[in-house]
């Protein structure tokens, strides 16, 4: 090891590379999150349905995705679909895999949120003369939504961390850039320490914003 404790200069000179990686990480995270939020709603609808032909596939989907690693889902989509003729770009495969996996988790979170609003509040709405759907919309959903802020935000943090896995299919996000930089230089642990700090700041900011929003929502309710 050289005389330096930490080669700050190297990091400083290569900041553009880190920024670029961070940008891709954010891109992938946001797209995956959007996909998961929407996909989760669809799946949740199926999970809460009383019709078997909606309930069964939704349940199978959730069970399968929650019990298999996202890495396998990613490889399956990227390499598997390529053989069947659908050649996906690495980013697309990565986003789809992350969205798919987290849609399963969000579906269960939505379901738990809706079911956690006690029957009494729904009945209060019905007693006031609202029809079932209106009561759901005006009473149950807003209350459920306020309780969902925390778990959903938490999934965003999970997604951000899981984007590091798309480095294994050569997407040039933060971890991948770090790996490339480390392999080309001698400042390996500086690079990864910096990567770690980047992720830490990212997840902390998201968590902080989440907690502030939660507190605001709680004041309203």
């Amino acid at each position: 090891m050289g005389g330096y404790f930490f080669d700050f200069g190297f990091i400083y000179r290569n900041l553009p590379i880190f920024w670029s990686g961070l940008g891709v990480t954010l891109e992938v995270s946001v797209m995956a999150m959007a996909g998961a939020v929407v996909g989760g709603l669809v799946i949740a609808f199926g999970r809460m349905s009383r019709r078997v032909w909606l309930f069964a596939p939704a349940t199978a989907y959730v069970e399968f995705l929650r019990n298999t690693p996202v890495l396998i889902q990613m490889f399956g989509l990227y390499f598997g679909l390529a053989v069947l003729g659908f050649r996906l770009s690495p980013i697309t495969a990565g986003v789809l895999a992350l969205a798919g996996q987290n849609a399963a988790y969000l579906a269960e979170i939505y379901r738990a949120g809706i079911e956690s609003v006690s029957r009494r509040q729904l009945e209060a709405g019905l007693a006031l003369g609202m029809r079932r759907w209106r009561a759901m919309r005006l009473v149950v959903v807003p209350i459920a939504a306020s309780r969902l802020v925390a778990p959903i935000g938490n999934q965003l943090v999970v997604i951000i961390k899981d984007t590091s896995l798309v480095s294994s299919i050569s997407v040039y996000e933060l971890t991948m850039e770090g790996k490339r930089l480390a392999e080309r230089s001698a400042a390996t642990y500086e690079v990864f320490a910096t990567i770690a700090v980047f992720y830490l700041v990212l997840t902390s900011v998201v968590s902080l914003v989440l907690r502030l929003y939660e507190r605001r929502v709680q004041l309203i309710f």
Partner: peptide, 22 residues
């Protein structure tokens, strides 16, 4: 808890992998 959960597992693994020889 903060440090561990705020960083992806893969990055932890890389850190240790690159840090140990140092």
């Amino acid at each position: 808890v903060f440090l561990t959960r705020g960083i992806p597992l893969l990055v932890h693994l890389f850190l240790v992998y690159y840090l140990l020889p140092v």
